[in-house]
Design a protein around this nucleic acid. Sequence first.
DNA 1: TGTAACACGTGACAC
DNA 2: TGTGTCACGTGTTAC
Lengths: 219, 219
Amino acid sequence: MENIGDEYKHYWETNMFLQTQELDSWGLDEAFSGYYDSSSPDGAASSAASSKNIVSERNRRKKLNERLFALRAVVPNISKMDKASIIKDAIEYIQHLHEQEKIIQAEIMELELGMPNNINPNYDYDQELPVLLRSKKKRTDQLYDSVNSRNSPIEVLELRVTYMGENTIVVSLTCSKRTDTMVKLCEVFESLKLKIITANITSFSGRLLKTVFIECSNY
Amino acid sequence: MENIGDEYKHYWETNMFLQTQELDSWGLDEAFSGYYDSSSPDGAASSAASSKNIVSERNRRKKLNERLFALRAVVPNISKMDKASIIKDAIEYIQHLHEQEKIIQAEIMELELGMPNNINPNYDYDQELPVLLRSKKKRTDQLYDSVNSRNSPIEVLELRVTYMGENTIVVSLTCSKRTDTMVKLCEVFESLKLKIITANITSFSGRLLKTVFIECSNY
DNA sequence: TGTAACACGTGACAC
DNA sequence: TGTGTCACGTGTTAC
């Protein structure tokens, strides 16, 4: 009862940290208390057994805490560092992963049925068309019900166009990231029939930053 | 496997069971130990506080055990009913799910792009969940010519999917540059509902090189 | 016989 | 102020 826990902060990281550090010293402590206890009236046998039990129990607790610590490490978004909360979050996370796996499985099934996504199903005769017409048709179709119906247009937050001299234009724009924003951006750029040298898209904090290097010579 | 409670009486279900059973009798015991503790020099106040602490601690332990019990319930294939083993198995299971999710996501991506599966043998991951893998194999087999021929105007020349460890996948692909190729690529990536960190597209000699960094975070 | 796992009560400590 | 969480040592039980 000589409160070793005195120096403990009551919280976890510190506990674990100190624990791993102090375990060895406890081992030495153990030996010390071992022969110190041998002066107890009960005799050496019981004291030795008790000390063994104590150190064994310490190791068990340590192992359990390490496991819990490791469990906390593989679960994202842990709200509280509480033992019970860690387990609770782990449970919810596993259930979440199960749910997600079901969704992915459904997606795979959808894929297996030959319906990659909800692009219009008139590919049979579409295939017979030349590439250019086919694509344009598909694109117009999609533009119709994607832009017109319910999906929001591109919300451009910032736009900067720079002539780099020679034959190069740099277009840099930031827009809010929504569904199909990327697709629409590409549609716009494609429809301009520009010669894109290189483009870079980065998403951050719900926004989309796109930088495009364009060669000015038409093709 | 179901009669665990019979053979391992001292193990969990029984313990939980007995615990809930004995809690009441312990409540009576509590009263008993109450006057037993009243022999302490502090008097009734400390005994009452101690009893409160005792019952509170019991509840805490009970809650923790219930959580652990629930954790065991959502993790399949628990080897040992041991507390530490339950947590260990849960950790390994979560890691397994993470790994599997990454693999499947990459697989879906390859599939969506209609890639021949000649660069497959990365995955010797013969885990005990045969459903997904089985369906994956079947899927790759039968989709090789379905998606690839009739439905994908994207002509993928090269595709490389790399796990960067942790939470990142890098997809690098080269395809022939045609009209709307960019749009379709974006459609595919958009439909996968991935978390794209950054993407880079470069066009050279009639081809399109696209490199995408994807965050795999599961939320 | 001893080893391993457990629940218990208790003191300490932080919010 | 109490309420909640923790680690500790101990007794018990099963193998």
